[in-house]
Design a protein around this nucleic acid. Structure first.
Lengths: 365, 365
DNA sequence: CATGCAAGCTTGTACGGACATGTCGGAGAC
DNA sequence: GTCTCCGACATGTCCGTACAAGCTTGCATG
């Protein structure tokens, strides 16, 4: 039982089909309203309603006294604006600028603009951004979900996007209740690689510090735990520090301080950090406590940000495609807007690679 | 003889007037179609035609079974676009993300979008960006000039902007042949403050490394020279290293290495660096050469970026308003778009302040 | 008190007719 | 041959009616 479409909408789809198939080329005249009405067994008013909508969508234009014609521009697939919207949590910090930059460069090379909005990790701000993108004509939308582990309060707006036929691509994370392609990094594999590297170096007392109010941190943690299990280690709960975005300034540092002040035989010899930002903070903390990195403590970061090379201790970290990720999302979005099908999700996942630098060393306990 | 307007158009103007006068606020319900028809002596079909046009223009929306409502967005009088364009040289590096972020947050709070474009320091890319902003309806434009010391090849487009009445605000720098407000930092005063601080600490052999293909570096250099003159010092030319953007990866580091390998009595004891990025690079270089910072070498950076705190040596640097600068530019632009006059240029200049940290120390030669 | 249903509002769809206005081509006048 | 005018036909405006479908309210029923 498909639900019955109103007649004017069926006629609209018919005409859209004609245009797509180029049955009527640019500025070519369509049958008159009366002809269409007779042909389809409709009244002239109903035909007028159809054509009226197509005119307001820019697909057709009418000339008083002459007839109705196909618009030269705007093929149905090309639709929408000339700009693409992008909503991310933060735009100034850490690796986000590089992601934005990658998307911007790609869009620029394809003649598209970038309409940017940030949410500062607030779902309310995300809502505002979505509303503006809906009001403004955008060709498509790239979204980094805000607090993806805490559900999707703006689902109604995302549904409206899909109803309007505006393609959507997510980056880094996805809302589970939304079916759309997502360009991301394999965080679980990254967490696994980080821990496996340390285990290979002979470390046995690993600590992990992860931000777990998004799925990224959770996955990195899971990868670390899998590596430990495969090496026959069961990490002690108090060596796993989980924190939320709000606490990132103080809680992980305080917890790390407590761990590093333990006596020699209990102190962790290696730290797996949620990202480079935390890692440099902890390297600093360690040297403040008189622990030299990497001789007395190994530290692994994540994301290969510019921070990894800023200090005197160059961080061992996991690569992150950053600008390539942004560019890939932009490419994908424009392809979707052109009516191409989405590639399978597996092709949108980047595998992070371990970059060995100076913050990790073998351990001979 | 005014030409007679059709009835539906008269009603349309009436309703547009109501919306302009905020008689119906966002999401407030309008009279039903039958009420309007009775009130204006029209048929319901005619009223529907009116409302249909207003809906397709985005001023109203209808909800089946409930009624017709005023759209929250797009007041008719708001004019122009609802987005502001921003063109900067880089968007991912250094402090630029913070400037963008400040502008974005301010625009967001005022209900505007941000259309972003970067030039990667290419005048050709700047041209593309300007063309897109002109084609796309933007309310105004924030521009950071690209290679401002090398003239303005896109003047024709800037003139068209002004002819179209699109307000323009520059940040960081200005094209000398364009008369528009410019939000910036007093770089000369910054260079002066940096050098004066070192001179006050007892240093006498100062070296300076500046990127001089934009006006910022040139001004910082001039400030440094003024401070030296006032202290009765004439800096030797070979202690001043000037470089261009293309050479920034190698030339300043190579020159610094040469200076720091001079024998004790000739080696500079303090470096004034164009920015923090260069400063951390040189701190690293110095420790590689066995020179401890700040005991054997003082280093001053610029811009108080996150790099200043990333390493183990915390940089003494000059403050930069960053996000406040972006926000100020956005505020100013929206005010200009509202028809307010531009404030005097003096009020748009931020004075940098010295932030004393761990990379500078007194010198007792 | 809760549930369900119907009445009465809304907009949505579809038809019918009538006349106005703009365009164009052909018949007829010059 | 050229010009004018008229008629055919296009869209534009306006009205009327009817019924479908979605939402809210309130009354009646259990």
């Amino acid at each position: 039982m498909e639900d019955r479409q109103p007649k004017y909408r069926l006629l609209k789809q018919q005409i859209e089909g004609w245009l797509r198939a180029e049955k009527y080329r640019a500025d070519e005249q369509l049958p008159s309203e009366n002809e269409l009405a007779a042909q389809f067994g409709l009244s002239r008013q109903t035909v007028r309603q159809t054509i009226g909508e197509l005119v307001s969508e820019g697909l057709l234009y009418r000339v008083h006294g002459k007839g109705t014609f196909a618009s030269p521009s705007a093929r149905p697939g090309a639709g929408g604006g000339t700009a693409v919207g992008m909503i991310t949590t933060y735009i100034s910090d850490y690796i986000f600028p590089h992601i934005v930059r990658g998307a911007e460069a790609e869009l620029r090379s394809r003649g598209c603009g970038l309409l940017l909005s940030s949410t500062d990790n607030s779902k309310q701000a995300e809502r505002q951004g979505l509303e503006r993108m809906l009001a403004h004509p955008v060709k498509g939308l790239i979204v980094e979900p805000t607090r993806s582990a805490q559900g999707n309060t703006n689902l109604d707006l995302y549904v409206r996007l899909q109803l309007d036929g505006i393609p959507l691509v997510m980056i880094n994370e996805r809302y589970p209740d939304l079916d759309c392609p997502c360009v991301k990094v394999d965080d679980e594999a990254g967490g696994y690689a980080a821990a496996a590297h340390l285990l290979r170096l002979g470390h046995t007392r690993l600590a992990g510090l992860f931000k777990t109010d998004d799925m990224q941190g959770t996955r990195r943690l899971q990868g670390m735990l899998r590596a430990c299990r495969e090496h026959g280690l069961t990490p002690e709960p108090d060596r796993l520090v989980l924190y939320a975005s709000e606490d990132k300034a103080s809680k992980p540092a305080a917890a790390a301080k407590r761990l590093l002040e333990l006596p020699q035989g209990e102190r962790p010899t290696a730290l797996v950090c949620y990202n480079d930002e935390l890692a440099v903070q902890l390297v600093d903390l360690a040297s403040g406590l008189g622990l030299s990195v990497p001789d007395e403590l190994s530290v692994v970061g994540f994301d290969d940000s510019q921070l990894a090379l800023a200090g005197s201790v160059k961080l061992t970290t996991l690569s992150h495609p950053k600008s390539e990720l942004g560019a890939r999302a932009a490419r994908l979005l424009l392809d979707l807007a052109d009516g191409q099908p989405a590639p399978p999700q597996e092709q949108l996942i980047y595998a992070p690679e371990l970059i060995e630098r100076g913050s990790t060393a073998p351990w001979n306990g």
